[in-house]
Computed example of a mutant assay.
Amino acid sequence: MKTESFVFAVVGIFGLVVGPIYGIVTDWQEPVGPVGLLLAAGLGFMVAFYFWLTGKRIGYRPDDNLDGNIDEAAGEYGDFTPHSWWPLWLGLTSSIVFLGLAVGWWVFAIGAFFGVFALVGWVFERYKGQHAM
């Protein structure tokens, strides 16, 4: 978690430095930019602190060790359904839903209708067929 905390600390430092500079350059006429950058800095520091604290509590992972080998991180990463087509249909229906937000509510309704079937199919695909639990 050392790398992740460093990345978010850099984000926090960037927002903390650039926020006031942006305000000075714009003569504080546009207040949303500096406030947004300072809030992003706060968010970056909060996430960096969380990763640092979690890394201290659970210990560092094998990928935090610069002299570590690849086989130290070996192991099971999860249980995934092989050759699943449902994420494709769910992605297509979600694109129709987001298109419906721009075009019209009737397109949104069509995408939501098909999205329910895609979501149910993806959730329950492990309960029948060759890869059933």
Rank of each mutant, 00 (worst) to 15 (best):
G36Y: 03
S5D: 09
I21K: 10
I70P: 02
A40E: 01
G104S: 15
G121C: 02
I58T: 13
S95A: 15
V123W: 13
N69C: 03
L90R: 04
F117E: 07
A102D: 09
V116C: 05
E72F: 08
L66A: 12
A73Y: 04
V25R: 12
I24L: 14
G75V: 02
S5N: 03
G78D: 13
A118W: 00
F49N: 07
V107Y: 04
V10R: 02
G33K: 04
L90D: 00
T3V: 07
L66S: 07
F49D: 02
Y50E: 10
G115H: 02
T54F: 11
G15Q: 01
F117W: 08
L101W: 14
P62K: 04
F45S: 04
V97H: 02
N65G: 00
G15D: 01
N69Y: 10
T54K: 15
F6A: 15
I21N: 04
V10A: 14
L37E: 03
K56P: 01
G33M: 06
F113E: 00
V103M: 13
Y22P: 00
V116R: 02
V17H: 01
G111P: 01
P31A: 08
S5C: 09
F49S: 11
W122Q: 09
G36D: 02
A48D: 06
I13D: 00
G55Y: 00
S5F: 07
R57G: 05
S94E: 08
F98Q: 10
V120K: 11
G44D: 06
A112K: 03
F8L: 11
L88R: 13
Y22N: 03
K2F: 10
G42A: 05
F113R: 00
I58P: 00
V10E: 02
A9V: 07
H83K: 14
P34Q: 14
R126K: 11
R57C: 01
F49W: 13
F124Q: 10
Q130G: 08
A41W: 03
D63M: 03
P31S: 10
R57K: 15
G68T: 12
V35A: 12
K2H: 11
D71M: 08
Q130P: 09
G19R: 05
G100H: 10
V7E: 08
P20H: 04
G19A: 12
R126T: 12
P82Y: 10
R57F: 08
G44E: 04
V123Y: 13
V10G: 08
A48I: 05
K56S: 04
W106N: 06
T93A: 11
I58A: 11
P31D: 08
V18K: 00
L66Y: 08
V25Q: 15
Q130W: 12
G19V: 05
P87S: 14
V103G: 05
E30G: 04
V25G: 11
V47N: 06
G15Y: 01
G36Q: 00
V18E: 01
V32M: 11
L38N: 06
K128Y: 15
L43H: 01
Y22F: 08
F124N: 14
F117L: 12
Y77N: 07
F14Q: 05
L101C: 10
D71K: 12
T26G: 05
G15W: 02
I21R: 09
G121P: 05
L37T: 00
G78N: 09
T93W: 12
W52N: 14
A109Y: 07
L66F: 09
I70W: 13
